[in-house]
Design a protein around this nucleic acid. Structure first.
Lengths: 338, 338
DNA sequence: GTTGGCACTCGGTTGAGCAGAGTGCCAAGG
DNA sequence: CCTTGGCACTCTGCTCAACCGAGTGCCAAC
C-alpha cells in the first residue's frame, strides 16, 4: 500500500520534527533530505500519508506532524535501536559500578537514565515475586515480639514485626530459623508457600501458634505485590517541553507521583526486548501525550523488574531505546555481581 | 518607626496578594479591609513601606507586592501559626495511623503534607545519627561473608556486606553478636564508637581481624551521614504557579532532585519550632523565588529528622506553618508508638 | 496627619495590516 | 500513471498604533 518512498518521507518527517520541534513542510523536507523528488511530489505523498492517518497538520497550511500512528510505524518499521558508543558504554559501567548497595544502584540508574535520555527516568526495584530467598532471619526484640527479616538474592531487605501469642523460647526460635532457611534459601518466592506448608507439624504443640504466625507474616510479605517500589528522576527535563505543552506537564507530574500508575505502566512492558508505548496507547489519560520506553532487567536471563523513561511522543526513539536497553543490561550485570 | 497602621497595611497587602496573586492597589485595599482611612492615606503608608523595602511595585503605577523582607516581617510579627481544626487533626491522625512500616509512614506523610498545603512536600527519614540502636544482627551468608543488619529505634533498617579475611566460626559469630548487642542496644549512635573501642580484645587472636572488620563496617554505617534519605512529593503543585514564574519551575525541580541540596536546606532549620526561609534567604540559587517551611520531628522531645514544604514566596504562611507543625507532631507520635 | 482631586504613567488588550510558509489543485511533460 | 512547476489561497504570527483602566504621586485644603 505504502510505497517505499512514502515510508521514506514519513521517516524524514519524524526525524525533522523530532529535531526541530516544528511542523515540517514539503520544501524544507526536500532541502534537508535528498529524496530525489520535488516538493510537489512530496506534497502528494504527504496527502496520502495524512489520508492514512500517519501525519496531520495542526492548521490548514502549516507543516505536518506525525500522529501516534505515524510514530508507531516509525518505531516498528523505519528505525532500529541506536547502539551506544563504546565510550558511553564504559561510562555507564563505571558509573553503576560505583554503587555500594541496592538503593544506590537504583538511585544511580535513575540519574544515569535521566541524563542519558534527557527525560524522566523510572526504575522499579527488583520485584520480590521473581526473586529467590537468600536468607530469612528472626530476631527476638521482646519476649513476645519478633522481627522477621527477609533478604533476597537481589539484595533487597524486607522487615516485618511479628507479635506472638505467647512467649517465644530461644531454642524454638533457633530451630524455626534453621528450618526456615534450610527449606527456602535459594528458592523462588513463588515456591515458598508449598515448601513451608507442613512446617508447623515439625514443632511442639506449644510453639505452633508462634510458628503459624511467623509463617503467615512471611507469606504475606512475599505475596505483597503492592509493596513494589520504584524511584523516579529527571522530572526537571519535563520543563524542556514546557512551550510545547504548557498545561500538559501537570497531569504528567501527577501521574508520575502515582506509583500505582507507573507500576502498571511498567508492568505492561514485555519481559524481553524494548517496549514502546506511544501517546494514546498509554491507558492513563495524563500520559496521552507522552511515550513510554521500557524494558525488563535482571541478574540472569529473566527480568526481575522493569525500567524506562517517560518523554514526549516527539522523542528520539532510536537513541532512547538504545540508552534504555544499554542501561538495563548493565544494571543486570551489576546486580548479578553483587 | 513603623506605626501600627502601617503594619496593618502591610499585613493587608500580604494577605490580599497571597489570595489574589495580583499586585494590590490602595483602592482595593481600603475596599476589602476596613482600615478606616482613605486610599490616599494608604498610598502614603505604601510609599513609606516601599521606602523601607517591605514592598515594591513591579512597574510604575501598578499595585504593590511584598518583598522578601516584607514577608519576613509578616511572618515574624504580623501573623501567627494557624492551628488545624479538630477535624483536620483527626484526619491526619487516621491517615498516618494506617501506615504499616517506616517507609509507609514517610510516604503517607509526604502525601498528606502535599495535599494539606498544596505545595511540594519534603520529608527526611529519621536520621541515623540521632537514633538509638535497637538491635544488631550478623548473618553468615557464606563461609567468609557476613551480612550486618542494623535496626534502629525508629524502625529503620540498614544492611551491609562484610567480607571477612578468614573463615568465620559459628561460635565466634554468636559471641560477637551477643557482645555487640549487650553493649550497644538502646544506646545512641554517637556513643557507639566509644562503647566498642576495646571489643576486639575480648576475642581470640584468630578472630580479631574479623571482629575489626565488622566493627569498621558498623561504624562506617553509623557515621555515614551522606546516607541520609528523604522523600518528596506534590511536585505537580508546582504547576499551579506556572503562569507566575514559568521558567522558574525548572531550577526548582532541579534543586528538588538534588538530595544534597534538600538535606542542607532542612538541616538549616532549627531543631524546635517552625523555621521559615523566604526567597533569597535560601542559599541555593534555584530556590530564590521560593520559601521553605520546615520543622523537626521526633518520637521523643528531640528531633530525629526534619520535614517541610517548598512553595512560592507568595504562600499562606500561617496555614502552611500550621499544617507543617501539625503533621510533624503526629508523625512523631506514630513513630513513638511503633 | 488625613483627604479629595488631578494629571500622569504604563502595562495589557484590541484590531488592522503585512509577511511568510505551506498547501491543494491543475495542467503539462516524461 | 507518476512527477513537476506554477499559482492562487489560507492560515499563523508579528508589528504597530490606539485605547482603556488601574494605580500612582503630588498638592492644596481640611
Amino acid at each position: 500500500m505504502l510505497s517505499e518512498r512514502r515510508l521514506e518521507v514519513l521517516r524524514a518527517i519524524v526525524q525533522d520534527y523530532v529535531g526541530t520541534e516544528e511542523p515540517v513542510g514539503s520544501k524544507a523536507l526536500t532541502e534537508r533530505h535528498n529524496l530525489g523528488v520535488s516538493p510537489a511530489t512530496v506534497r502528494n505523498d504527504m496527502a496520502a500519508l495524512e489520508e492514512d492517518g500517519f501525519i496531520h497538520q495542526p492548521h490548514t497550511s502549516a507543516g505536518r506532524i506525525p500522529t501516534d500512528k505515524g510514530y508507531r510505524l516509525f518505531v516498528d518499521r523505519l528505525a532500529g535501536v541506536k547502539p551506544m558508543s563504546g565510550a558511553e558504554r564504559r561510562a555507564i559501567h563505571n558509573f553503576l559500578g560505583g554503587a555500594v548497595d541496592l538503593d544506590d544502584v537504583i538511585a544511580r540508574t535513575v540519574r544515569l537514565l535521566a541524563q542519558l535520555t534527557r527525560q524522566v527516568a523510572v526504575v522499579q526495584y527488583p520485584s520480590l515475586t521473581r526473586s529467590t530467598v537468600r536468607h530469612v532471619e528472626l530476631l527476638a526484640l521482646a519476649p513476645a515480639r519478633l522481627m522477621l527479616v527477609l533478604i533476597t538474592d537481589t539484595g533487597r531487605v524486607e522487615q516485618r514485626m511479628v507479635d506472638c501469642p505467647s512467649l517465644v523460647g530461644e531454642v524454638a526460635l533457633a530451630d524455626l530459623r534453621a528450618r526456615l532457611n534450610s527449606r527456602v534459601a535459594g528458592r523462588r518466592f513463588t515456591d515458598v508457600p508449598q515448601l513451608l506448608q507442613d512446617l508447623p507439624e515439625a514443632f511442639e504443640q506449644d510453639d505452633r501458634p508462634m510458628v503459624t504466625m511467623v509463617l503467615a507474616t512471611l507469606l504475606e510479605t512475599l505475596g505483597e505485590e503492592t509493596e513494589e517500589r520504584l524511584m523516579i528522576g529527571g522530572t526537571a527535563n519535563l520543563t524542556r517541553f514546557v512551550h510545547d505543552f504548557p498545561m500538559t506537564i501537570r497531569p504528567v507530574l501527577e501521574a508520575l507521583e502515582e506509583q500505582v500508575v507507573l507500576l502498571k505502566l511498567l508492568g505492561e512492558a514485555k519481559d524481553s526486548g524494548v517496549t514502546v508505548r506511544i501517546g494514546h496507547e498509554n491507558a492513563h489519560e495524563g500520559l496521552n501525550s507522552t511515550s513510554v520506553v521500557s524494558v525488563g532487567y535482571g541478574s540472569g536471563d529473566e527480568a526481575v523488574a522493569k525500567l524506562g523513561v517517560v518523554g514526549p511522543t516527539r522523542m528520539d526513539y532510536p537513541g532512547t531505546m538504545g540508552a534504555v536497553r544499554a542501561v538495563a543490561r548493565y544494571v543486570g550485570q551489576i546486580l548479578a555481581e553483587s
